[in-house]
Nucleic acid binder design. Structure first.
Lengths: 194, 194
DNA sequence: CGTCTATTTGAATGTACTCAAAAGCGGTGG
DNA sequence: CCACCGCTTTTGAGTACATTCAAATAGACG
């Protein structure tokens, strides 16, 4: 295919574009394949890239002063992911992104994103809606974190992201829930014995 | 003043508007004063209003199945606040909003917001940027919640929102941090003894 | 089968919680 | 001006939940 616009259909699902627009989008959206355990972003690097997951699973995590990792977000098919502080404030990354499986992603730089907003305003609308979804899910996660114990948070996670849970090691889930692998193991044991 | 556009200058700080546009905005932005302890939103009500705080302090909170309150967000001057799930997904509110001081707010309904987006696209851009800020601060809060103990979370809160801390009772701060008032009291004691 | 990684189990520890009670603070009225 | 009341914060003692550290078991893969 000369102009393979299939990726655009995936990335900007729901929108339709003119040939002109497709050309523009093609020029800024870069497909990259990563092997499992690849590091896409490291703390202190510039964080000016948003990643769209076409296939596979990514993990956004923070390394604290004791060297412990804390998973802030996972991203599977059709999710966007970035270090928000870095991306939106043009700051250096404080978080890391790694592929926890082989993954195919589309990269979009902030500069190119702004260019898209200018040329194709409906893309700004599209991302505005994505941001609304993220906002809503963070509010919910905050509620759960504040009001539920570890077992309930685990149940919420499994119920909310059944498609994510499959791909992921338990120790990653534990680090997302803010508990140790040992605690998660005991929680899972309790749940099966009921 | 015939057309008092001062409120627009506050609410959409940084933007400039034509007379036409100002008229439109005036027609959808409603100024309301609330007394301390007023309830602006209750769980199960429609949550289709965004609130802009002109003056005073609001609190967004969740009541869990045991009747305990958990503060998800505060809003002081120049902040927007809403139950995101309710507002963005046209669902019923799961959270509550109350004034924790006398407050002056501007209300904007979702219907009117969409009307504004249509008529004045730069307002959509304005809110898109607000959403980015919210996203970034939630990611940071998530990191802190996952990686820090209660004392560190308290220090982070005070450092991040010095202007909020003044207005607020300690038991509200505790409910924001996910700890009891007793624990917060002990933490504060420890900090002053250093 | 052996090695590496991930998960589970156990025992001791720690952090924050619950419940109960005391102290502090602010406003109101006698 | 002080006594009282309601609300907020502090203190104390016992408890619960999750952690740490160490070791055993289970899986995956060559």
């Amino acid at each position: 295919m000369h102009t393979d616009n299939s990726k655009i259909k995936d990335v900007f699902k729901g929108l339709s574009f003119s040939k002109e627009e497709i050309k523009i989008i093609e020029s800024v959206l870069h497909k990259v394949k990563y092997k499992k355990a690849s590091q896409l972003l490291r703390a202190n690097d510039p964080g000016d890239i948003q990643y769209y997951v076409f296939d596979g699973c990514l993990r956004l995590y923070y390394i604290d002063t004791n060297g412990k990792e804390h998973t802030v977000q996972f991203a599977v098919q059709d999710w966007w992911i970035c270090d928000a502080t870095a991306f939106f404030y043009d700051a250096k990354a404080i978080m890391n992104i790694e592929a926890i499986s082989d993954a195919t992603v589309y990269k979009l730089s902030k500069k190119d994103r702004d260019f898209l907003y200018l040329k194709i305003p409906k893309i700004e609308s599209f991302f505005r809606k994505k941001l609304e979804n993220v906002f809503a899910s963070f509010q919910k996660r905050t509620i759960v974190n504040l009001s539920q114990n570890a077992a309930e948070r685990y149940k919420f996670f499994v119920a909310t992201y059944p498609n994510i849970e499959q791909h992921i090691k338990n120790y990653h889930i534990a680090s997302f829930l803010g508990i140790t692998t040992e605690s998660l193991s005991r929680i899972r044991k309790d749940l099966t014995h009921k």
